[in-house]
Design a protein around this nucleic acid. Sequence first.
DNA 1: ATGAAAGCGCTAACAC
DNA 2: GTGTTAGCGCTTTCAT
Lengths: 357, 357
Amino acid sequence: MAAKDKSRASIHDVASRAGVSAATVSKVLRGTKTVKPANVEKVRMAVKELDYRMDPLASSLRRARRQIIGFVLPELESEFFGTLTSHLEILAEQAGYSLVIGSSHESEDRERQLIERMHDWRVAGTILAPVRSERGQGAAVMKNRAMVGVLVDRVVANNNFDTVTADNAHASAKVARSLIKAGHRHVLLLGLSDVSKNIRTRISAFKEQVEKSCPEMSVDVLLAGGPMYDLRILLGDYLERNRPSAVFSLFQKGTMTVLSEFRRRSINCPEDISLVGFDDAEWMQATYPSITVVAQPIAQIAHQAFARLLSRIEGHAGYPVCQLEPCDFQMRESLANIGAMQLSHTPNKRRGGSPPQ
Amino acid sequence: MAAKDKSRASIHDVASRAGVSAATVSKVLRGTKTVKPANVEKVRMAVKELDYRMDPLASSLRRARRQIIGFVLPELESEFFGTLTSHLEILAEQAGYSLVIGSSHESEDRERQLIERMHDWRVAGTILAPVRSERGQGAAVMKNRAMVGVLVDRVVANNNFDTVTADNAHASAKVARSLIKAGHRHVLLLGLSDVSKNIRTRISAFKEQVEKSCPEMSVDVLLAGGPMYDLRILLGDYLERNRPSAVFSLFQKGTMTVLSEFRRRSINCPEDISLVGFDDAEWMQATYPSITVVAQPIAQIAHQAFARLLSRIEGHAGYPVCQLEPCDFQMRESLANIGAMQLSHTPNKRRGGSPPQ
DNA sequence: ATGAAAGCGCTAACAC
DNA sequence: GTGTTAGCGCTTTCAT
């Protein structure tokens, strides 16, 4: 009975204040209908008076699972993952969960540890965006521990999880078709040499489309190994001896690098070389030229991934599905039509675009 | 004794496997030195054999506080907050905490709720980056609930917390000096009309410096109210009738908008109008022109904020301090020297920069 | 040096 | 309908 001077009211404090038992308070709080209205009222009052809030973690200690969704992702610094996280956070909350995130910084070790932490936390489910290298063991750990989970953005082979990604192949083929239609016959594909499935898919889908629709197009592929410095040198060397009419950058940092390398070498885009990027960013509309890109359907990926996860959490069985979300092709200024160029080309007029008003 | 078929070993399972009591296991696990080496060994074995990992949440249920740091921030989508979060996550882990984040989406209501959630979770401490409007009640709630906390990036009046922000005033004054020195005498300051202390500080520090060093400079101020659309129109209208020699954008989206508005109106930057931005972003080095900016010291802010928080968690008392971290002025191409321009101006050569090789 | 016992704040079974 | 009892997985006196 002695009012132990703790700063925070517990369910027992509420119970005695309301003149009922802790169990009844618990029932009221989680909305069980079998409580006498008068008592519901009394409990409500007591809660208000004591400014009581229950401890969700202690609460879920009794159940097998906490009302928490884990999200393990490679990096927080990019617009893509920031936006994805933001969507997932909202979705989780709407479903009554809290989202707890951990970023692996593209480290396989950290990915493992973070998945393990999610397991320790007894999360109800985990969404994993694997590290680029594909050698991360996150998915394997999830499988071993029989965790409920979904994979997004980057797919890992041999896992047993539902998977939601952008439809890289279709998007890449679409870019190929656009370039062909715009008259391009020599294109550079700029990617990463990591064994990244996404990059590989983008390359092969592009090539397949070219093979099918325009076999005479020549397609060069440049794969950067390490940090951006390498990429710059690689691209610089390439541009010393080659003049493709278009570059298709397969990842966002590549697009940035191409743009600045064009500047450094006084290459005019799109007059001299066109540019198409994979992965949109807000600033790509403000540059000169604004950049034509494949925009990933971030909101859809988040929604689908979360829906699948929830359904698995609720016990839905069945084979894992591999879901592809269509990308959006954003035609902007950096992709020029080669045929049209020769008709409308204005020397020395370096900045096109609509005239004032 | 009946091995209840649960999927996960508990501390009792380890105890019986090792032939000791749960209390002893607990002691071994948290490194108490008063355990017989032989038993330590037995426990270690059992842990390994059962692949035991303790539940950090259940563990901290007994203590008053969990090993969790909360971070409430306005948005995850920007490079600034993404990077800040990333730093804090690492720092928290190094100190043995997990970072749990919640993004308020600039909503005062959400800010409140998130702070309250952190309280419910019994976090050891909370870092709050308040919503722009300053009307958020997050800090007030933290104070009422006697939470341990630190404020970053945006300061709120009348709080009792340590505060760590970029030194907006010094940075802004430095920009003023640079513009003056470069010969500019008519500058537009572009900000947000929200009652945002940061923006206000940037404006007043700029004006004070001008007053002091170059009173004849005319300084216009444009404050955008709502979404970016407004900003575009506002800026457009202004540029119809005014030709400042430089624009100082006080926030990142503003910088982007200025850049694209320049393009839309065929204004050459920096030949016609110079541009300086507050808040750096990676892409600002790849644009033409690359953008001169004030870069906020994100890593330092994170370190200082975390250090202060830890010290408060450890019971350090004393008046709240308000700490300012110096910004980095990144001189790039978008700020032109007006005097030099007239000597070296090359008509029709729209892309300056160093020639190839 | 160790284990029994008593919780942390809450929920769930089961009497009443 | 409601209260009692028995934990969830762990820590922490406190005897021994």
